[in-house]
């Protein structure tokens, strides 16, 4: 395959992200970009589960919260090294996902939606109620910043470096994954569980794996979130945030790695751009969810591309060159 190197999306990603790092000078924009990065992490993870594997989670904010609070409590209260706390967060979230997934992934459709939703609400309530541990509704403060070899990620600009380098890696890993043997099996179980089984795919095990994997992304995002804000409160991890994540997946496009960046970006920037957005937030999120799902079920960009592609298939009598 002959491809011009500068058309490679990874090079493009690095150049754009690096360019921003070199030329932008306002902290505000870095802060915004950092939230886009954290949200994208979450959305890519959820997209692997929802878009690729076809398994819904309406409680993904819980894993985000578990990551954030494990990091927060271990560093601010116990005084553990932040990186170690981050790994502990991964362990906690991964274990929680495994324990919930084990029974829940035997269920389908609505039941799975309800089980994940119930789990999300329970975690949210615990974050609020176990105030000895979590600080309760007023939150947990004094979370230190991450640092690497004496370089503290304590300004928006420095955090930007950390978050976006990590994001680049995660996007790369995720794109690899969906085009690997396991990734194909995951997409296969979405399209036809019986057919996948008939080819030797252990669909239940695979669902469980991708559920845990997806929770790890959320946990990583949560730890970064805690160390970015140095303060966390339960309100960031409620049911509405789980719904926002689903909206980002749907807008960016189910089963689209790069769409996740788009969906997270758009729905993070939009509320900032429109100050009136705050009052209309729910109306807009609700309307996006419904409209995209009804009219462009493959997401905004792909939906529009599909309209074009369909024309092309028709014009060529149902075939096109490889």
């Amino acid at each position: 395959m002959t491809r011009l190197w500068f058309l490679n999306r990874w090079v493009l990603f690095a150049v754009v992200a690096g360019g921003i790092a070199a030329f932008m000078d306002q902290d505000y924009y870095y802060t915004l970009l950092n939230f886009i990065g954290i949200h994208t992490l979450l959305v890519v993870g959820l997209n692997l589960l929802l878009g690729y594997a076809g398994q819904i989670s309406l409680g993904h904010a819980a894993f985000f919260g578990l990551g954030a609070y494990t990091s927060g409590i271990l560093t601010a209260t116990v005084g553990v090294d932040p990186w170690l706390a981050l790994v502990a967060g991964l362990a906690v979230s991964g274990t929680a996902a495994f324990l919930i997934g084990l029974p829940a992934l035997k269920l389908r459709g609505y039941y799975l939606a309800m089980a994940t939703l119930g789990f999300g609400i329970i975690v949210y309530i615990i974050l609020n109620e176990a105030s000895d541990l979590t600080g309760g509704p007023s939150g947990l403060s004094g979370i230190p910043s991450l640092s690497l070899a004496g370089f503290a990620f304590n300004t928006p600009r420095r955090l930007y470096l950390l978050i976006w380098i990590l994001l680049g890696l995660i996007l790369y890993i995720s794109a690899n994954l969906v085009n690997s043997r396991t990734g194909r099996a995951i997409r296969a179980l979405h399209d036809g569980e019986a057919a996948a089984e008939s080819l030797g795919v252990d669909t239940f095990r695979l669902k469980l794996k991708i559920f845990v994997w997806s929770a790890l992304y959320a946990s990583l995002a949560g730890s970064l979130f805690a160390h970015t804000l140095n303060f966390i409160a339960p309100s960031s991890f409620g049911f509405m945030f789980s719904i926002k994540l689903v909206t980002m997946v749907v807008l960016g496009g189910m089963a689209s790695i790069w769409g996740s960046l788009l969906g997270a970006g758009a729905l993070t920037v939009l509320p900032e751009l429109l100050t009136v957005f705050h009052d209309f937030e729910m109306v807009i999120f609700g309307a996006i969810l419904m409209a995209v799902m009804i009219f462009l079920p493959r997401g905004l960009v792909r939906g529009i591309l599909d309209l074009y592609e369909n024309r092309r298939y028709k014009r060529q009598g149902g075939s096109f060159p490889v």
Partner: peptide, 13 residues
């Protein structure tokens, strides 16, 4: 699920 959840959020908004 997504559409009716969207509907719920919209109506609430």
């Amino acid at each position: 699920i997504i559409i009716t959840v969207g509907g719920a959020v919209l109506i609430k908004g």
